[in-house]
C-alpha cells in the first residue's frame, strides 16, 4: 500500500480528525465549564470562561469529601484486586493440575455462576452481608473476591495450560515446598494474565456503583467516589459549577491510568473479547 498524500488520504485524515474531536468533546465541555461561574455556565456552556474560577474545585472537593472518597475507592480496589489475584491464582493452579471429581465440580460451579446477574442476588446478599457484619469497606472488598472469583479462576486456569507441568515437577524434585514452588516459580510465569485480570477487574471494581450503594450507603464516611458523586447530585441537583469539578476529578484517575497503561488495557480488552 502506498502511503502518499493522495486526495482520498487527506479526506480520510480530515474526516477522522473531526470524528475524534466529536468523541472527545464531552471531556472538553466538562473541563472548560468546570472553571466557569454558575451564571456563565447557564448562559452559554459553549463559550470560553471569562475568568478561571479554580475555587470551584475547592468547593466541590469539600462538598463531596473527595479525598476520603478517593481513599475508600483505592482501599476497596487494592484489597479486592489483591485477594482476587492471590487466592484466584493459587486456586486456579490446583484446579488446573488436579483432575478429580471435586476439582471438576468446583470449576463447573464457578463457570455456571458466571451466568448469574448481580441484580438477581443483590437482595439476599445484603441480608447475608449484614449478618456477617460486612457492611463496611473491608467487607465490600471481600464481597468482590466472591464476585470476581469465577472470571479470575477461569482466566488463570486457562492460562495454566501454557505453563508446562514439568516446571511443577522439577521444582518439587529440587525440594521446593508448594508455597515456594508457586510464588517463586509459577506465579511469575502468569505475569501477562495477572496484568489482564488486574486491569479488567479494577475497571469494574473502581467504577462499580450498585454493590457499594447496597453495602456502604448507611455511612457517609464509607463513600467511594461513585457514591460520593451520586449523593452530591442527590442534594445539589444541577449546581454545575460545583458538580463539574467533581466529575473532572472523578474521571482523572481513570484517564491517567488509561494513558499510562494504554497498551496493556487495549490488549486486555481484545483478549477478553476473544475468549468470550
Amino acid at each position: 500500500m502506498n502511503r502518499q498524500f493522495t486526495p482520498l488520504r487527506v479526506v480520510f485524515y480530515v474526516v477522522t480528525l473531526l470524528f475524534a474531536l466529536v468523541v472527545l468533546s464531552p471531556f472538553y465541555f466538562v473541563l472548560v465549564n468546570s472553571v466557569k461561574s454558575y451564571g456563565e455556565i447557564i448562559i452559554d456552556a459553549a463559550a470560553l470562561p471569562t475568568e478561571l474560577k479554580f475555587s470551584n474545585y475547592a468547593v466541590g472537593v469539600e462538598r463531596v469529601n473527595f479525598w476520603l472518597a478517593f481513599y475508600r475507592s483505592l482501599f476497596v480496589t487494592v484489597i479486592g484486586l489483591g485477594g482476587m489475584a492471590i487466592f484466584g491464582s493459587m486456586a486456579a493452579w490446583k484446579l488446573a493440575r488436579v483432575k478429580s471429581r471435586v476439582s471438576t465440580f468446583m470449576y463447573a460451579t464457578y463457570i455456571l455462576a458466571m451466568i448469574i446477574p448481580f441484580q438477581s442476588i443483590m437482595i439476599p446478599l445484603v441480608v447475608v452481608a449484614h449478618n456477617f457484619r460486612m457492611l463496611n469497606p473491608l467487607g465490600l472488598a471481600i464481597l468482590y473476591w466472591g464476585f470476581g472469583m469465577p472470571l479470575t479462576i477461569f482466566l488463570y486456569r486457562g492460562y495454566f495450560n501454557y505453563v508446562p507441568r514439568e516446571l511443577d515437577e522439577s521444582g518439587m524434585l529440587d525440594g521446593c515446598n508448594d508455597f515456594v514452588l508457586f510464588w517463586r516459580i509459577l506465579f511469575p510465569q502468569l505475569r501477562t494474565m495477572t496484568t489482564t485480570i488486574v486491569i479488567l477487574q479494577s475497571l469494574w471494581v473502581w467504577n462499580d456503583f450498585l454493590l457499594p450503594l447496597l453495602i456502604l450507603q448507611h455511612d457517609r464516611s464509607f463513600y467511594t467516589i461513585p457514591l460520593g458523586i451520586n449523593s452530591f447530585f442527590g442534594i445539589y441537583k444541577a449546581q454545575w459549577d460545583m458538580a463539574l469539578p467533581i466529575l473532572v476529578l472523578g474521571m482523572l484517575p481513570l484517564i491517567t491510568a488509561f494513558l499510562f497503561a494504554q497498551k496493556n488495557i487495549v490488549r486486555s480488552i481484545a483478549a477478553s473479547g476473544l475468549k468470550g
Binding site: 467504577n207 456503583f209 458523586i229 451520586n230 474521571m251 481513570l254 484517564i255
Partner: peptide, 8 residues
C-alpha cells in the same frame, strides 16, 4: 470513554 464508569 470505555474506562469511565456508568454513574459518572
Amino acid at each position: 470513554p470505555n474506562v469511565i464508569g456508568g454513574i459518572i
